[in-house]
Design a protein around this nucleic acid. Sequence first.
DNA 1: TATGAATGAGACTTCATTCAT
DNA 2: AATGAATGAAGTCTCATTCAT
Lengths: 197, 197, 197, 197
Amino acid sequence: MSKKRGQKYDRIIEAAVTVIAKYGFHQAQVAKIAKEAGVADGTIYLYFKNKEDILISLFEEKMGAFVAESRRKIGLEQTAKEKLRVLVHAHFTQLEADFHLAVVTQLELRQSKPELRLKINHVLKGYLSLLDELIQEGKDSGLFSSELDRLLARQMVFGTLDEVVSNWVMAEGKFSLAKQTEKVQKMLLDGLVGKAT
Amino acid sequence: MSKKRGQKYDRIIEAAVTVIAKYGFHQAQVAKIAKEAGVADGTIYLYFKNKEDILISLFEEKMGAFVAESRRKIGLEQTAKEKLRVLVHAHFTQLEADFHLAVVTQLELRQSKPELRLKINHVLKGYLSLLDELIQEGKDSGLFSSELDRLLARQMVFGTLDEVVSNWVMAEGKFSLAKQTEKVQKMLLDGLVGKAT
Amino acid sequence: MSKKRGQKYDRIIEAAVTVIAKYGFHQAQVAKIAKEAGVADGTIYLYFKNKEDILISLFEEKMGAFVAESRRKIGLEQTAKEKLRVLVHAHFTQLEADFHLAVVTQLELRQSKPELRLKINHVLKGYLSLLDELIQEGKDSGLFSSELDRLLARQMVFGTLDEVVSNWVMAEGKFSLAKQTEKVQKMLLDGLVGKAT
Amino acid sequence: MSKKRGQKYDRIIEAAVTVIAKYGFHQAQVAKIAKEAGVADGTIYLYFKNKEDILISLFEEKMGAFVAESRRKIGLEQTAKEKLRVLVHAHFTQLEADFHLAVVTQLELRQSKPELRLKINHVLKGYLSLLDELIQEGKDSGLFSSELDRLLARQMVFGTLDEVVSNWVMAEGKFSLAKQTEKVQKMLLDGLVGKAT
DNA sequence: TATGAATGAGACTTCATTCAT
DNA sequence: AATGAATGAAGTCTCATTCAT
């Protein structure tokens, strides 16, 4: 049915990001997305099963690239500490590079219905796995505490990154995300107390 | 207009929590809430200006109590370290005590429209201030690192707690939140690396 | 049921006039009228069968007095010409004396439902009869043309007076109605052409 | 937005006239109009902004044609006297030709809310201007009295025509309006007294 | 492939009226 | 007589999706 990877397929996805970022999730009607993409309303349904499918595809495409890029960069590093730095940096850099996309993923898409959120979570799994691996590696290498609960650790890392980016989006991108990298990395590694250096 | 603190006022708030938790935000029609509360549809409007007002009031009432209780408990402690433990514990305990409420605040209410979210954020401010104070106090007392960025620190603490609770809710409350307290406190204090004890 | 002529009965009627003039027909809820009258909502129903009954009673009371007064003044005159002058003058004077009432009868009450309008028309009959009598008398006395169609003549007289008052109301009473008396009387008597005096 | 002059646009307007005449203004729901027009409820909103827009458009379309036709016919006559006859005749003929429309304009539309009435009055202005011009012309040509107050004269003419038509509508069209033309014209010209012929 | 006019289900809110006190 | 809290019916409009062209 939906032939992924047509020229129009991409145009519709981009249009959805633009429209949602501009008007918000609840004002992003199919008709508006079609107009932004320069196609007829009905044409949308030649490429997507329904509206939800646009949003899921959007998330899959964007998040897929996001995870792949993060994974690639992490693979270039040796230690868990460096990998964490790269992960944080990649997370911040990629979202900072596309404010529209950040608005959509951090704020707007979270207004969607449970069914959609479920599928989004499924897509997120890939990223969470990446975090899990990183934490496990850190523990195995002896860098991270052996007492660390892997699930909780992942929740701390992801929760922190997510909260930082959300605050950045709500501050309308008024400060630099990438520049927070070092501080965030250090804070995640050493906690509130900090390491006695 | 809306007579706060009537018997029915409370009943309607409780009904809203129940209905939203049970059917989800988008399927929580006024009629359903009225039925659950055992009143006529129109009665709702004797106590609330409109549907949004129910949701804001719900959040204000519950979050107000939440913040007050957390603040009270924290006040009983002396050190920032102990205060953090109490904060985490209070956060987890209070949400664990009312799964319905947790579902509503962690998942459902986040689907609301921008206007509502704005008002909810306003209510959240009170809690974030509490976190800010706690962090500042930790820095002042020398327990927390003096290099700590207060805003980032708050984002780590809140982001972590929020993510942990969200995971708990999505796991349908299948594990104990309160029991995570110590591990989360330790992790926030000492980070992924952990303290060389 | 409705005991006409209580103290509250009158207060409610006056309140209705005030509220309708102030807020308009469609914003004149029973609750507002009750408040203006200084009684409870339910009390209204001790004096009036329903909301419509308030409006009909209002019209009956006010229009009854209006007609009686006009009839009385006309009775003091001898010729149809003089009687017409007095009628026009009375019509204008009485409405000019109570702008609120004029707003209600000329504009607001006309927004009511067919059933109410029917009853209002019934009340109007008394006034129209007065006009009919006046015209017949004019014809009998030879002052008015014998060719005059009585019904059409009445429609011209009433239609003209009504239109003049409506325009005055819509002009927010910015000019004097009473001062139009002579010109209107003359125009009704001699038409557009005017009499070759 | 509202695509004037589509086939459906006209069908909806006609349906509105029919439904309002049949059920009355307050019982003319959008659903009923849609059904009468043979379209879905939502289709109405492809052609009209909202319900009020249907009513305004109805009035504009019908009254616009009414005024244009009256103006055209009047233009064919030479003297103010003849023009008045033609105006009265056109007024009566056009409303008599469409009883439903007459019911709607004389009775039902007057029940509308202030905002709508305001817009209707705006449309009416065109007709009142036509009357003004006619009266001025009559005065200039010496046919009408030079003492005539133009505004009052217009109010007499319009008030009379309106009242005659309203009576005809309330008599359910049981007598011929057009046949009243001569008598009404004569009465407006010569007044109640009549001309000494 | 592409179009875009048409569809129709679904919910918030108002307010006249009642009735237990 | 008086109160006023409670009732509940009813209508406008939006927008995802379809389908004839």
